[in-house]
Design a protein around this nucleic acid. Structure first.
Lengths: 261, 261
DNA sequence: AGAAAGTTTTTCACTCAATGAAAAAGAAAC
DNA sequence: GTTTCTTTTTCATTGAGTGAAAAACTTTCT
């Protein structure tokens, strides 16, 4: 019964929040930072960063190289591997993805939904010199990619409504940017059971994606991308379907057998 | 007289150290924990853990499911991907590993040295139902595995001396446990340019491994394992050599071109 | 069903650990 | 050489973190 305005009573930053913001200063574009760079990036006084960074290094969350640059520590990587998205998804998916890659010879991807984005959990390419567009961990739009559309199509109506109302960025001339058009496409995806996207995000990239269900709810999406229409889509689709079926079955099997999540 | 206490590793510490120890309570064996479990594992009072866990959740480092279980958050996974071991090694290695896996059909692995252990950075198997012995992130002994022996063989003399003096655990009857025998084997590895290990760690597992150099110093080791001697070792070896050469070349190329680390 | 045991959340007075300005010590740039 | 920038140390101040205890919930047992 609080009639008080929802003013967040959090003007100050706790020590923990500060420590996390030190870690947050690192990004794909800035994977290496000096003390003073961290200080500037976070707005925290150098002396404070000095102490916090020291403690984080102590714990293995940061590491410091010979030229006084910090980067994120190996402990952080190890902990990331304990995350459900890795241990309960990518690890189980891997054999299926490998086989799918083996059969199709194309780029294969696994994505989940997080918030209002799709996130690549795994991505396999055997082309060495490919200009990497998006890496594992990248966030990509739900409306403009095959995996995104699949993830969205089978999500709760509430989420669909929310995304549909968002301003839909136009990445290429083929990107779906209209609310009605997107809703129609999502409906198509559900009818077909898979998504097909040609040049909606990256020109020249043709992708198909299919859903992975656990207990009837969508858990992830698998996709196959090929550039410049090299591959036989029919064949890719068959392989994709098989991979998704196998993966779904495995997840459900583990869920039934395993005690938790 | 052992001071047996189930909470030894938590003398009074800084806030940051406490927060990190909350994260540290999670492991491969206990990827999900309740508040009170964390409290017991860390030796911190529940009220303290309550606050810290709340802040870590706020920052995306922990997540809480419907049944009040905490697990490590997606943010942690994302940050792990920014770590050099991932972005500067596994990501670049991946196409070569995939191709190696494709050619040999066997389990393929990439490992680095960290402290006195080898750590698996990547491991590819396309067999679905394999009883997973060691996963990505696992630490494995330097003296008893092919990748470990390669990593050690090309390390600094100081490190070799240190490892050689350690008590060398005997995993199978074929494990090298003697100091002199290990030194001799390392010498063999250097002479041959690769390591060959049969049932030294896991009975029935035959592995070969080769080094990956950057600027003349060893950076990682690639290996191929096959169980029950199914594969043609000669063929595997050729493929392995090619993968390592390609990968080394790519790393050196990037190092020369790229600005840093 | 109710009681008992366990877990999560809130409260609050105390106090100790975190703070950051400033100065010292090092590096690098000019 | 001087200047400019960065890292590290010091230290008086204080407010953020603390944890015992009680309240609020949940689960388990009889």
């Amino acid at each position: 019964m609080s009639t008080t305005s929802s003013t967040p009573p959090t003007p100050s930053k706790s020590v923990t929040a500060r420590a996390l913001s030190v870690l947050g200063a690192f990004s794909a574009l800035t994977p290496r930072l000096t003390l003073s760079q961290i200080s500037r990036a976070t707005g925290l006084p150098v002396a404070t960063v000095f102490r916090l960074a020291g403690e984080l290094e102590e714990g293995g969350f940061l590491q410091r190289d010979s030229s006084n640059y910090y980067s994120l520590g190996i402990k952080l990587w190890e902990m990331g591997l304990l995350t459900p998205v890795h241990g309960r998804l990518r690890e189980i998916a891997m054999p299926f993805l490998l086989n799918l890659q083996y059969v199709t010879h194309e780029t294969v991807q696994l994505a989940v939904i997080d918030g209002l984005d799709a996130v690549y959990v795994e991505k396999l390419t055997n082309v060495v010199d490919v200009p990497v567009q998006s890496r594992i961990g990248s966030r990509i739009p739900l409306h403009a990619t095959a995996v995104g559309q699949v993830l969205l199509a089978y999500s709760d109506a509430a989420l669909i409504d929310e995304v549909v109302e968002l301003p839909l960025a136009e990445y290429t001339p083929d990107t779906i940017t209209g609310k009605r058009a997107l809703l129609r496409e999502l409906s198509n995806v559900r009818d077909r059971g898979y998504a097909y996207s040609a040049s909606e995000y990256l020109p020249g990239a043709v992708a198909i994606a299919a859903p992975v269900f656990v207990d009837g709810a969508i858990e992830a999406a698998c996709g196959v991308v090929n550039y410049d229409n090299r591959a036989d889509i029919e064949q890719c689709y068959a392989a994709l379907q098989e991979a998704c079926r196998g993966f779904s079955a495995r997840l459900n099997e583990l869920k039934a057998a395993g005690q938790s999540f």
